[in-house]
Simulated scan of single mutants.
Amino acid sequence: MPADVFAKKRRNSVLLFLLIGAATAISIIITEFSIAKGVTSVPKAIQWSLSNFYPTKDSLAKLPDILVKLKETLLISVAATTLAGILAFVFAILGSNTTRVNAFFGGFSRGIAVLFRNIDVSIWALVLLFSFGQSSLTGYFALFFGSFGFLTRAFIETIDEVSSSSVEALQTTGASYLTVISQSVIPSTIPQMISWVLFMIETNIRNATLVGLLTGSGIGFTFNLYYKNLSYDIASLVVITIIISILSIELISNYVRRVIL
Rank of each mutant, 00 (worst) to 15 (best):
P2V: 10
P2Q: 11
V5Y: 15
F6I: 13
A7I: 10
N12E: 15
T24N: 01
I26L: 10
I28W: 05
I29F: 12
I29C: 11
I29V: 13
T31A: 11
I35R: 05
A36I: 07
A36C: 03
K37T: 14
K37R: 12
G38R: 05
V39C: 05
V42K: 08
I46T: 13
W48I: 07
S49T: 05
L50A: 14
S51A: 13
F53H: 05
P55D: 03
L60W: 04
A61S: 09
A61V: 04
K62T: 14
K62N: 14
K62W: 01
P64V: 06
V68H: 00
L70A: 12
K71M: 09
K71W: 06
E72Q: 15
T73Q: 06
L74P: 01
L74K: 02
I76N: 07
A79Q: 11
T81H: 03
A84R: 03
A84H: 00
A84C: 02
G85T: 13
G85D: 10
G85R: 10
G85A: 15
L87K: 04
L87C: 14
A88S: 15
A88M: 07
V90G: 08
L94A: 08
S96A: 04
S96E: 04
S96N: 02
T99W: 02
R100K: 12
N102T: 01
F105K: 05
G106E: 01
G111L: 11
G111S: 14
V114Y: 00
L115C: 01
N118K: 08
I119V: 14
I119E: 05
V121I: 13
S122P: 02
V127T: 06
A142S: 14
A142C: 08
L143Y: 12
F144N: 03
F150P: 00
L151D: 12
R153Q: 06
A154T: 01
A154L: 07
I156V: 14
I156T: 00
E157V: 06
T158Q: 08
S163A: 13
S164E: 15
S164T: 11
L170T: 03
T172L: 11
T172V: 11
S176T: 12
Y177K: 13
T179L: 08
T179M: 11
V180W: 00
V180T: 05
S184Q: 01
P187L: 02
S188D: 08
P191D: 03
M193Q: 09
W196K: 11
V197S: 05
T203G: 09
A208R: 00
L210G: 15
G212T: 09
G212N: 07
S217R: 10
G218Y: 03
I219W: 10
N224H: 11
Y227A: 10
Y232R: 10
A235C: 06
S236W: 00
L237E: 06
V238L: 02
I240F: 15
I240E: 15
S248G: 09
L251W: 11
N254P: 11
N254K: 13
L261H: 03
